[in-house]
Design a protein around this nucleic acid. Structure first.
Lengths: 217, 217
DNA sequence: CTGCATTTTGACCAACTAGTCAAGTTTTTG
DNA sequence: CAAAAACTTGACTAGTTGGTCAAAATGCAG
């Protein structure tokens, strides 16, 4: 990670000015748009600078390398992306907890599709920039929640199911609507934009998954 | 689409020589590897030429534009990718037909992950090269099968479920294991390579989806 | 084995792009 | 309000990459 600015005396404090805060945000917002559409290699610094409304050298004043923008963006996104999983309550009602998790994920997929695509693209290409994050942060969290789900299964509160595959299935299904949006639109056409579409999607997904894991008599 | 070679007399026949056949195959195989890993923009012609064991100008003799290789590859892939959906038998047993479809898709995801990633990457970036294919070929086929599933639901052979969302869920879940392989590996570690992994995956996916759509009393 | 068509390649070019730099402008601060 | 710090940018460079070209090598039909 690069130091943002050099101060006269060499310290760590790193105070950020008002202008820095504004411009970094401007850059990151523009970059999310562009990176999520064209991927890392497909994106040029000029595109981001244009969209952020500033000159390329100025952009590079805030983020000395293209990589810096990309990595910052991914880190920001992952944090937010994982939060709902962490909030699954081991003491709550299993079906209810999973219903909430799936619902939140579908909502995120609709409200921040770019974030989903940014992440999908990175993983698709082998996750060169975040493989450490995956093993150091994601894995432990998933292991933790998988254990909870396994306990639920043991207690007969869920049908016997591999917790990891269940989690993957939830991720795959919910993110599909953001990542493969073009395909969904090609098939379902005008329906996609319509008001109740998200609810209809949530309903269908919840119905299949929850009935699929409800304890069977 | 570009004409491959010009013949002395201007005709259509387009005969392909032995060498052409060999080299085109060599190029396409190499290109699938590289494109699926780095995406269209992230791939250089030199990389493909290297992997195919020939010089860049020679490669360009067979495919005058980088685009040509990419599009050819996508078309080849899509054909194969869609076949299993077409094979769903409207007269068969619903649960059995869907079990077969899911099983085949998981097998394909494991045996040709590059093809899945190539396609995923293209759709993720807005499907610029295949949007026509999506609306002209994919949509009609899906509409057709959705109608079959809807009829099954009407006949009480499946629980009430939106057929389109069911199909999306099957695609999302099965392709997840190819497209997000790195993530799956980061979480499940050594298990992924192990012999029975595909069967375990298939078992989990089938169990949730099929129980999720089995008619309820 | 000869002459024509096909295949192969080294050398090259033009366009693009990440990143630099030095000189200016604006903002902050004492 | 002046000086210092922070910010901004036009012009530039070096490296990369898609694609060209002309000439050489190879394959093949008669």
């Amino acid at each position: 990670m690069a130091r943002a600015t050099k101060k006269k005396t060499s310290e760590a404090p790193e105070k950020t000015t008002r202008i820095q805060e504004i411009n970094r945000r401007l850059i990151l917002d523009a970059a999310l748009d562009v990176f999520s559409t064209y991927g890392f290699r497909g994106t040029t610094i000029d595109q981001i600078a244009d969209k952020a409304g500033m000159s390329k050298p100025n952009l590079l004043y805030y983020f000395p390398r293209k990589q810096n923008i990309y990595v910052t963006l991914l880190e920001e996104t992952l944090e937010e992306w994982l939060a709902p999983l962490a909030e699954i309550d081991p003491e709550g009602d299993p079906i209810e907890q999973l219903r909430k998790y799936i619902t939140v994920k579908i909502r995120m997929s609709e409200s921040h599709p770019e974030a989903s695509r940014l992440f999908a693209n990175e993983v698709l290409h082998g996750a060169p920039a975040i493989s450490e994050f995956l093993s150091k942060h994601l894995k432990p969290l998933v292991d933790d929640k998988a254990a909870v789900i396994r306990r639920w299964v043991g207690e007969g509160k869920l049908a016997p199911v591999d917790p990891y595959h269940l989690i993957f299935m939830i991720w795959a299904t919910t993110q599909h609507y953001a990542d493969f949006d073009v395909q969904v639109r090609a098939i379902m056409g005008n329906q996609v934009g319509r008001p109740g579409f998200r609810e209809q999607t949530a309903q269908a997904v919840l119905s299949i998954i929850l009935n699929g894991i409800r304890p069977r008599l």
